[in-house]
Design a protein around this nucleic acid. Structure first.
Lengths: 247, 247
DNA sequence: CGGACGCTTGAAGAGTATCAAGCCAGGTGG
DNA sequence: CCACCTGGCTTGATACTCTTCAAGCGTCCG
């Protein structure tokens, strides 16, 4: 008996199943979605602000982010995405992009035409619900980022972001032992938190100094998880993870 | 022939129809949803952070907002809501509330059990799509607020918010002629923008001084719309309004 | 080996917060 | 009907967080 290779969309199925129970029929329906898999280089836009999207994109490997440019080169990053995410799922119902989705690292992505997504959600309400829920969790993260921007000082804000990024990866098996990949430059961190890279650098220095984390060669090591959580008043509820992590 | 009274959920139907075309059958399905209509006083919570919701709430009249408290009385407001909005629609798929929904003014609201919403969305994919789309626009506003928080200075930020609040009301016929209700205190504006009420006050003073707006007795009058738009780099795309306003 | 990119640090300045006080209008009770 | 009280608005003085500008360093890669 030959071992069965995992399906290309396995990261997506793994993510959905961490949140909903899928019947065999539903899983098969997802697996028979027509996908076009591509490997993209780092720092390449996938869909741009102003584009009219006709397909969605599943991240299979690597990192992506969503952002928007303003005048004078100002940029705001909205979210970071890892394997299993569909960062532009919203384009299914709002095809006109109001921001850009791009890769951060080299990435493998699968494209699925909107047409087929509309079809599968019409036939399987449970899949529609799972995807809808995914976009709602997306929004919950935006709200938490709003809190960080509006009401948390720089140190708390950054600490909070690190807690979030670690737990998101841990929840899908991409991290553990309080260490995880973090292919994010200080400039990216600045554009995600609304600060300058200079200030990010100084805050990171203090975090290191206080023995909370190290961040080196695109790897985050949390050396004092409890303290990081306390310092940022982190409460994972908003992530709405099903299998709650031990922390 | 007696004139037919508008249905209680008319504000909701009006909003959905500004975005999707509803068949007679679909409109009837909405009209036959079991609703419990209540008049609530100002500043009353409707669902609280931590609650497990079993119903959603349609604003029929008045204003509501969503917010969350942090330690030391810090508060972040996420959104303002007017007639036709379903501010807690996300509780359909994420019943555990991670923030609070409350009234700002006295308000008339209609409650609809999740059960019936799940039923109607399963039977009418077009209604499901319209509601899903609504939650996605919600998220688009969060993203725009993130930009304002992260990358716009106070003056631009506040100007941008005023453009948004005016257009949202204009789109459903609650405002026109560059004037609209705005029952928001300076403290609320502060908690929505991540500033202090003192600073809000000073920015408002400058806006008045530059002849852009007046804000008095809960009424916003935009005296120089084009300039307000220019000052805040406002681009209405993210509101995804169907009938585009003249501006 | 050179260049680009990302990280690091210092000095000075801007924007916003904090603290404190006073004002005004509307609503309530005597 | 007036006195009072409260919530919201306004203003000044001072403090601080974070930005800006500038320069230098390390490392990876062509």
């Amino acid at each position: 008996m030959a071992a069965k290779l995992p399906h290309a969309l396995y990261p997506l199925i793994r993510k959905l199943e961490s949140v909903t129970r899928l019947s065999d029929e539903e899983r098969q329906a997802i697996e028979s979605l027509p996908v076009r898999v591509r490997t993209l280089p780092a720092k390449q836009d996938i869909v741009r602000d102003g584009d009219r999207a006709t397909q969605c994109c599943v991240i299979l490997e690597g990192w992506a982010y969503r952002y928007k440019f303003l005048a004078e080169g100002r940029r705001q990053i909205f979210s970071f995405h890892i394997a299993g995410d569909i960062p532009d799922l919203q384009s299914m119902h709002i095809p006109l992009m109001d921001h850009t989705l791009g890769t951060m690292t080299q990435a493998i992505v699968a494209f699925i035409p909107h047409e087929n997504l509309h079809d599968i959600t019409a036939r399987f309400p449970a899949i529609a619900a799972a995807l809808w829920r995914d976009t709602l969790i997306d929004a919950a993260l935006f709200r938490e980022w709003l809190i960080s921007m509006g009401r948390r000082p720089a140190f708390e804000h950054l600490a909070h972001l690190f807690c979030e990024l670690y737990l998101k990866q841990e929840a899908v098996g991409l991290a553990g032992d309080h260490r995880c990949p973090l292919p994010i430059t200080q400039i990216d961190l600045a554009d995600a938190t609304g600060m300058t890279s200079v200030h990010i650098n100084r805050v990171l220095k203090e975090m290191r100094g206080r023995g909370l984390i190290t961040l080196h060669r695109q790897t985050l090591v949390v050396k004092a998880w409890d303290e990081l959580v306390r310092a940022s008043e982190f409460d994972a509820t908003y992530l709405h993870l099903q299998k709650r992590t031990a922390g």
